[in-house]
Design a protein around this nucleic acid. Structure first.
Length: 200
DNA sequence: TCCACGATCGGCT
DNA sequence: GCCGATCGTGGAG
């Protein structure tokens, strides 16, 4: 499958958010290849009070001001990491949060990253569905931490490829989760009826 | 320098 | 359904 080019990431953030659904997020770790189909995202725009970049550039959010096509990973609640795709042109400060993926390859590694082991019995539906159905769960399963903050998605370690084409009628737009401002904006997008979308 | 709080998750009631 | 964990960040002073 084709790696998405820089032109994919330099468009309008809301356009990118919707077109990321169905694409394949890939991380290579040594010989292992972790992959998952993106099923749920949220968009964060520069003039949006819920966006980390809303108040301008800081030490934490400076990666968001790169040109689209970089990974922005941040630490929150003293425990979790969340991973975003930086979007739009250099200096703007926008991103798309990956909220959930459908695991495809490297499930044994994801199991180990999430639960500390990869025994076959853990691959029962309970644990499998709980693997990547949330932003911090996805980051943990794919081993994304501050070390990956700022990585280019045009390189060979972490990138996104073409996947399933999702028709507009299968895309649901709703309000974003877990924010205290700009709660009216319907900038959370997910694939209708996907079992891998986060709860709530 | 200080301190309130967060783009969450999992365990407990 | 609710609540606690746990700490880096940044806005306030």
């Amino acid at each position: 499958m084709q790696k998405l080019p820089s032109s994919f990431y330099s468009r309008r953030t809301l356009t990118i958010a919707k077109s990321l659904l169905g694409k394949i997020f890939i991380r290579k770790i040594g010989k292992k290849i972790l992959s998952g189909k993106i099923v749920e995202v949220e968009a964060y725009l520069y003039n949006d009070p819920a966006c980390h970049a809303y108040r301008g550039m800081t030490e934490r959010n400076k990666v968001m001001f790169n040109e689209g096509g970089h990974l922005y990973v941040y630490f929150t609640y003293g425990i979790h990491y969340c991973a975003n795709i930086v979007t739009n042109k250099k200096g703007i400060g926008e991103a798309v949060l990956i909220r959930a993926v459908e695991p495809i390859g490297g499930i044994d590694v994801m199991m180990k990253n999430r639960f500390g082991k990869s025994d076959r019995h853990l691959e029962g539906d309970g644990h499998l569905k709980n693997l990547t159905n949330g932003p911090a769960k996805f980051a943990q399963a794919f081993g994304l931490t501050k070390k990956q903050n700022g990585v280019s998605l045009l390189g060979n370690e972490i990138f996104i490829t073409d996947g399933e084409k999702i028709s507009p009628s299968r895309i649901v737009a709703t309000t974003r989760i877990g924010i205290s401002v700009a709660q009216e904006k319907k900038w959370r997008f997910y694939i209708k009826e996907s079992p891998w979308v986060s709860k709530r």
